[in-house]
């Protein structure tokens, strides 16, 4: 059996961890035909790159803002050193550039299993409300604005508090026009326009990690309830659940989008009504994805198989009650690792 070299991005695992390291752990958990795991990273201090047990090679790559040409050049260099069989980008901001390089990457023999640009666009925060309306899916009332004066309209329509969201990342809860304006400016400076403003619904958060076939079929789904949150609202502990309503909603969404590849559906179960509202669709694995491997529905390993062109039958849902707890630890390493990354832009473990 041919050994696979798999390149994975998103390796910074701080209190807002990227999904790369859990994706690698999942792949290593179930696949035994792994050649090299190649970490692609942006900064020499991205924490996960110092885990030499998980990674074989690490390379710095240009930030997405530098464009797809810079990324292609870097991938060509890496590919010449160690041929990449499969590339798994795990950050929202990377999907567009990687998609634009699909032809070049495919001709190099690098396989991907990603959403199309159109699928990616349809689930964007700015268009999600429209998409939900079209497909009869509940979501919080939303305004997409470019002018901070319109925050007043949102406050009048939705009452307080409101949720002010950046077009790519981050969200703040605002209790007044002044607070909302500060959040607007902060998000605009960081992620640009538009800004998304939503009504705030009190309730519990539920997430579903999914893999779609690209033809409307849901290949696998792992629903999870967050048990502990960080100050940034990220899951620090969670548990698999089994809810037929949530399962049907996930199927409906994947079918409507004809989603190809991994995604995370974020729902809010309203306290008052018990009804699920779709809050976001993230176009990549969540950072808690190792739970899928632990629960026997290994979604990253499934994406590897799909990228190879294998036909995969829809996976049975996981058993309820498999939980995870995140654990921060220290990696100890010689200074030459940092030296190698900062001077050469790469670190070869083996």
């Amino acid at each position: 059996m041919k050994k696979l070299n798999i390149a994975v991005t998103g390796l910074n695992a701080t209190d807002n961890p990227a999904p790369g390291i859990p994706v690698i752990r999942s792949i290593r958990h179930d696949l035994n035909n792994i050649g090299k795991i190649i970490g692609l990273t942006y900064d020499a201090f991205d924490t996960g790159i110092y885990d030499g047990d998980l990674l074989d090679e690490v390379y710095l790559i240009p930030y997405p803002s530098e464009g797809e040409d810079a990324l292609l050049k870097r991938i060509e260099y890496i590919h010449a050193r160690t041929p990449i069989d499969i590339l798994i980008p795990t950050l929202d901001s990377e999907i567009t550039n990687v998609n634009r390089l699909m032809t070049e990457l495919t001709s190099m023999g690098i396989k991907l299993f990603l959403p199309t640009e159109e699928q990616f666009r349809l689930r964007s925060k700015a268009l999600l409300s429209e998409f939900c309306k079209k497909h009869g899916i509940s979501c919080p009332r939303t305004m997409v604005i470019n002018d901070p004066r319109l925050l007043n309209d949102a406050l009048k329509a939705y009452g307080t508090p409101i949720v002010v969201k950046g077009t790519f990342y981050e969200a703040y809860i605002a209790y007044s026009f002044e607070e909302a304006s500060i959040s607007f400016q902060r998000l605009k400076a960081k992620w640009g326009l538009p800004i998304i403003v939503q009504e705030h619904l009190p309730g519990e958060e539920y997430d579903v990690a999914c893999v779609g076939s690209g033809t409307g079929k849901l290949i696998g789904a792992v629903p999870m309830r967050k048990l502990r949150l960080t100050e940034k609202g990220k899951a620090w502990a969670g548990v698999t659940i089994k809810d037929t309503v949530l399962a049907k909603l996930s199927e409906k969404l994947i079918k409507a989008l004809k989603w190809r590849g991994p995604c995370e559906l974020e729902f809010l179960k309203e306290q008052k009504s018990g009804k699920y509202y779709l809050v976001e669709i993230n176009p990549r694995f969540p950072s808690w994805i190792y739970l899928s491997a632990g629960a026997g529905v290994n979604l990253p390993a499934t994406v590897v198989q799909l990228a190879l062109g294998k036909k995969i039958k829809p996976l049975a849902p996981p058993q309820a009650g498999i939980s995870f707890v995140r654990h921060a630890t220290d990696l100890v390493c010689p200074m030459r690792y940092l030296e190698s990354l900062t001077t050469l832009g790469e670190l070869i473990y083996r």
Partner: peptide, 18 residues
């Protein structure tokens, strides 16, 4: 089907995760 109750009185609701 939807609830696990252990002999120690720990109850897990499979649907809500509570």
């Amino acid at each position: 089907e939807e609830i696990t109750l252990t002999p120690n009185g720990f109850l897990f609701d499979h649907v809500t995760g509570l």
